[in-house]
């Protein structure tokens, strides 16, 4: 019977295969599944999938290219952030998966794309979920997840009470790239470390990352300078200004005008920074148009 179904192209897919097919058709470049029990071995209480959805058993993690290849060729770094691709569709994809699971299998499901809830601390770590779902491994560039084929991924998840077969984490770290190991041997640095020495520190040993330190508090000031926190920071500066003429110049100036426009129209409110990863050899697929690996998901 299964032979007939196969021959007629009507083979019944497993729930996992069906969910992954749906994710890809909706625009995800990669998709993997992690079990909540596995994530909870690492995530602290208060930031676990089942802190977000009672009875959660599985997390479906989707990833896509953060930008078009062309955005990496722009000499204007603001465009690299404001022309983000997967972030524009990632929520719709995980929402579709959640709806599919509820309708077809009757299991309550929610979706999440990393929106913060308490300041900069998210409900749950998408990096951890992606790692456990086998989508990539951490990197020297602030622990960002890199995929061996697609490089940098942008992430979103569906959390469900449905028990699903989980994928295995990758067993070989993606970072450092062999080219970085060679650079380290010669120069005691890597492309990411030398791009942002203020935020990133670390050391390679025997071709692996020995230790690393990511100063997230500095990075977020740089990366989110054009986001809501940048607006707060500048507003405070304006309120502190004693000279009314100077205050006027600050309020009407280009920087504050752009921050206000961003808040009003969400034009650049996402903010962002990719400079430590711009020179990363693993990002070559993100920067190459026309190859299958570099396809811009769903856009």
């Amino acid at each position: 019977m299964s032979q007939v179904a196969r021959d007629l192209g009507q083979e019944e897919l497993s729930p996992e295969a069906r969910i992954k097919k749906l994710a890809r058709e909706a625009g995800a470049l990669v998709v993997g599944i992690a079990s909540v029990a596995d994530i909870n071995r690492f995530a602290p209480k208060g930031h676990r999938p089942n802190d977000m959805l009672r009875g959660a058993r599985s997390v479906i993690v989707t990833g896509g290219k953060p930008n078009t290849a062309g955005a990496f060729e722009s000499p204007e770094p603001r465009l690299l952030t404001s022309l983000r691709t997967y972030p524009a569709i990632r929520k719709a994809i995980v929402m579709k998966i959640a709806a599919h699971i509820e309708e077809r299998y009757g299991h309550p499901s929610i979706f999440y794309d990393g929106g913060t809830v308490w300041g900069l601390v998210p409900h749950m770590s998408l990096k951890l979920a992606a790692e456990r779902a086998g989508l990539g491994t951490r990197s020297l560039a602030g622990g960002v997840i890199l995929n061996p084929i697609h490089g940098l991924l942008n992430l979103s998840v569906t959390i469900t009470t449905m028990p699903l077969e989980a994928d295995a984490p990758l067993d070989t770290p993606v970072c450092p790239h062999p080219a970085c190991v060679e650079i380290w041997a010669r120069e005691r640095t890597t492309p990411c470390l030398s791009a942002c020495p203020e935020c990133l520190e670390g050391e390679l040993e025997n071709g692996s990352v020995k230790w690393m330190r990511y100063k997230a508090y500095l990075c977020q000031a740089r990366a989110r300078g054009q986001g809501p926190l940048g607006l707060q920071k500048m507003l405070y500066e304006i309120l502190q200004e004693k000279d009314p003429e100077q205050q006027k110049l600050l309020v009407f100036g280009e920087r504050f005008t752009r921050l206000i426009a961003s808040a009003s129209f969400s034009s650049e409110l996402v903010a962002g920074c990719y400079e430590c990863l711009r020179p990363c050899p693993l990002l070559a697929p993100n920067r190459r148009a026309g190859s299958g690996a570099a396809k811009t998901s769903g856009v």
Binding site: P44, K45, V121, W211, R213, Y217
Partner: peptide, 19 residues
């Protein structure tokens, strides 16, 4: 907090939650 994130190899040392 997560302000400065330390890793042994590629394994994060866990920061504390607000609680």
């Amino acid at each position: 907090s997560l302000a400065i994130q330390e890793y042994d190899g590629l394994t994060p040392r866990r920061a504390l939650t607000d609680a």
